[in-house]
Structures are given as C-alpha cells and as structure tokens.
Amino acid sequence: MTQASRFAGGLLSVAAGAALAFAATRSLRTPRSAPVTARHIAAARAFNGGSALLALSVLSDSAMEHYRGGFENPAMYAALASAAAALGASLHGGADRSETSHALRHAIQLAAAATGLAGTTFHFYNVGKRPGGWSWHNLFYGAPVGAPFALLLSGGFGAIAEQLRDEPAHDPRLFGMPAGKALALVSAAGLIGTAAEAALLHFRGAFQHPAMYAPVTVAPVGAALLAQAALAAPPRARRWRGFAYLWLRFVSVLGFAGAGFHANGVARAQGGWRNWSQNLLAGPPLPAPPSFSALAVAGLAALRMRETEQ
C-alpha cells in the first residue's frame, strides 16, 4: 500500500467517522428551548444509543476473539448472547419516546451488566493463572482484561436509560447526586479505562502508525474536561461544558474513524482483505474503536442533563 493510498484511506476514515458521529448524536439535538421533559427523554435515548454502540462492539469483538479461542469454555457463548440481547434492547429503547421505563429492557440490561462483571473477573483470572502471572506478556496476549468491561458499561448505560425515564424530569438523581453529574463522572471513568486498554494494545503494536497515539491522548483529555464540567461550580460550569461539548464531539469522530484505520491495518496485512478469514482475527480489532464514540455520546447526554440541573 503506497503512502498516498494510506493517506487517502485515513482521510476517508475521518470523513466517515464524522458522518457516523453526527448520526449518533442525533437524539441530542433537541433545542435548548424545548421543555425539560423532552430534553430529559432525549438524554435517556442518547444513553440507549451509547449502550447500543458498546453492545455492538462487544458482540463483534467477542465473536471474533472467542471464535479464535475455539469457544474452549462454554461461558464464552454468554458474552455473545448477552451482548446481542443488550443491543436489541438498546435499539428498541433508542426509538422509544415514552416517559416510562420498559421492564423487559431493564432486565436485559441488568443481566448484560452482570455478565460483563463476571467476564471481567474471569479475564483477570485468566491472565493471573498463566505461567508468569501478571506480566506484560500475559497482559498483551492473555484474555483482554478491558473487553468484558465494555459489556458492563453497555448494560449499565442501558439500565440507567431505563431508570432515567422513571425519574422526575425536573430533578433526576443517581447514586445520591444529580443524574447529569453522576453520569458525566461515570462516562469520564469509562473513557479513561478504554484509553488504558488502547494504550496497552497500541504499545504492543509499537505505535507503528502516528494515528495510534490519538486515542491515548485525545480520550483522556475528553475525560478530564467532562469531569471538570461535572464538578465545576455554576459560575464556571458553562464554560467548561462548552469545552467538553467540543472535545467530546471530536472523541466521537475519533472512535468511528478508528474503525476505518483498523480496516486499513487489515488491508496492509499479508493478503489484505482477500485473506480476511485470517487477517480479521490477527489484525487490529475493527469493533474496538467505536467504544470511544459510545462513551462520548454518553458524556454528551450527561452534559445536556447537567444544563437543566444548573
């Protein structure tokens, strides 16, 4: 692949990422002059959208990784089933404009969160039991410790979207604090964790492409701005929200564009897409980068809620 074609592929990835990010934040474009209830439901639907993106990422990633592992443990099927169910529930919730929660959707999302927690525990155990225990080699090539956490976040965001519908629109609360503040902090923590996972895998890849530095630098800045916007006192909160809005939109573009860069990475491997059955499993994971977009969408929804709280 020539330098010109790589550059063109990068531009195409960014353009496609921008278009997908615009579509993913569609439910948040409720006018600020709209009634508080309408903005409240729009935020809940945005969390459904973030949950759906994470569920799709987990479903695709776990399908490839567990297939590569030969589904050695029957529990590997649980991640696929749970992620598929969470994806369906989230898509249904994203289209639902009602002001009340859906019991079945809520149960599915809680089950997905529990499955993600169990998977995270199992992956930690898998790394620790390998010869050498907790070493860089086992972190690089053992079960990815951060992957099941995405399912936990997906189920958590989906469950939160359902709970928000039952909260009073004028004063929604979660974890004993204003909902927008709590959700902004959760989204910021998710961005930090996802960036750490990307840093580990990109370090394994020796940061051979300059774009590999983007997720490990852009996402943590977005997390810091989001946390500051959530915690800032009212006189300064509006300015910080403005910074966070702009940066999180950049992060949402970055996540979708990252999938394009990973697709280019697969194309550069021996045999390219003609050898897709091998290169998809051995190359950079296509489903991983959109997790950043999902968390950015959740962060944007939390900021919209924070506006009504202040």
Results as ranks from 00 to 15, higher is better:
residue 81 A to K: 12
residue 81 A to N: 14
residue 82 S to A: 15
residue 85 A to Q: 01
residue 88 G to H: 00
residue 89 A to F: 04
residue 91 L to P: 06
residue 99 E to N: 13
residue 101 S to L: 06
residue 105 R to W: 08
residue 108 I to C: 01
residue 108 I to A: 05
residue 110 L to S: 07
residue 111 A to Q: 01
residue 113 A to N: 01
residue 116 G to K: 09
residue 117 L to W: 08
residue 117 L to K: 03
residue 119 G to T: 06
residue 119 G to C: 09
residue 120 T to K: 04
residue 126 N to R: 15
residue 127 V to H: 03
residue 128 G to R: 00
residue 130 R to C: 07
residue 132 G to V: 07
residue 136 W to Y: 05
residue 136 W to P: 10
residue 137 H to S: 11
residue 137 H to D: 13
residue 137 H to P: 05
residue 138 N to C: 12
residue 139 L to P: 08
residue 140 F to T: 15
residue 140 F to P: 06
residue 143 A to S: 13
residue 145 V to R: 00
residue 146 G to E: 03
residue 148 P to D: 14
residue 149 F to R: 10
residue 151 L to N: 03
residue 151 L to R: 02
residue 152 L to W: 15
residue 155 G to T: 04
residue 160 I to A: 15
residue 161 A to P: 07
residue 165 R to L: 11
residue 166 D to N: 14
residue 172 P to A: 04
residue 173 R to Y: 07
residue 173 R to W: 07
residue 174 L to R: 09
residue 176 G to T: 03
residue 178 P to A: 11
residue 180 G to N: 00
residue 181 K to M: 01
residue 182 A to G: 00
residue 182 A to E: 00
residue 185 L to Q: 03
residue 186 V to A: 09
residue 191 L to Y: 13
residue 195 A to M: 09
residue 195 A to Q: 14
residue 196 A to S: 12
residue 196 A to W: 04
residue 196 A to H: 02
residue 197 E to N: 06
residue 198 A to S: 02
residue 199 A to P: 02
residue 199 A to W: 07
residue 200 L to E: 05
residue 201 L to Y: 12
